[in-house]
Simulated assay, not measured.
Amino acid sequence: MANMYLDLLAYFGVGSAHPGGFRLTQSILENEKILPVETVLDVGCGTGQTAAFLAKKFHCQVTAIDKHPIMVEKAEERFKNNNPPIKVIEGDAENLSFADDSFDFAIAESVIVFTNISKTLDELARVLKNTGRMIIIEMVVEPNLPIDLQKEIQNLYGICEVLREEEWISRLHQAGFTKIEMIKTPSTLSPSELQDVNQSENIQSKFYDLWEIHHQFIVQNHHFIGYRVFKCHLSS
């Protein structure tokens, strides 16, 4: 099913549309220990900014996957001279085309909320090795979120569920993640930074309108919606 907000991100080619942007990504990964022999999966890679950073910083084996063909095209463009090379796949996070126990590390930045959350978490647990770990950045809502605002969030972003922090933790446990840590960051959403863009030609005006609606929505409702960074392990 088409998602106008994800189409917007693809057409604008926003490198780090997730909360906190690329600076948050860098700070989160700063303390990670990923070995060159390890396999890494970037789920919902977008234009590939994070995947390129992972490959450059850790010299590891990175596979990047995204469902949107325009994002895949822009990621391939970014990676064409990358060393070490990065494998790019057009695919669905709910039905990953990898064997069980394929990856040592996975990252998903504001991706899982746009999918069937439980199916995607199950798939990520499946393709991670038993000793694997995962970092996800995801939208959370506060317990006092009004019902009408919940519906507005779902309509604006084309998502089926909006979860509270404890609901995310519960879903992660249900998927098989036994150890879940919270990485400390500012927890409130802020308007996305447009510092890394690869804009398509002839973008329709409705996408500019949607970006402005998104921006204003975050400014007006930041006290009801935020994000969390979860670090998850399959074994303790």
Rank of each mutant, 00 (worst) to 15 (best):
A93K: 10
A93P: 05
E94Y: 03
F98W: 08
A99D: 11
D100H: 05
D100Q: 06
D101F: 15
F103V: 06
D104W: 11
D104K: 09
I107T: 06
I107H: 01
S110Y: 01
S110R: 02
S110I: 00
S110P: 08
V111T: 13
I112R: 03
F114I: 07
F114T: 11
F114W: 06
T115S: 14
N116H: 04
K119V: 00
L121D: 00
L121E: 01
L121S: 05
L121I: 00
D122G: 00
D122S: 04
D122H: 09
D122W: 03
E123T: 00
E123A: 00
L124W: 03
L124N: 02
R126I: 01
R126K: 07
L128H: 04
K129H: 12
K129E: 04
T131P: 04
G132C: 02
G132R: 00
R133N: 14
R133I: 01
M134D: 10
I135M: 12
I136K: 07
I137N: 08
I137G: 03
I137A: 05
E138W: 08
M139K: 08
E142Q: 11
P143K: 14
P146Y: 15
P146W: 15
D148F: 13
D148C: 07
D148V: 06
Q150C: 10
K151E: 06
K151N: 09
E152H: 05
E152F: 04
E152V: 11
I153F: 09
I153R: 06
I153D: 02
Q154F: 09
N155L: 13
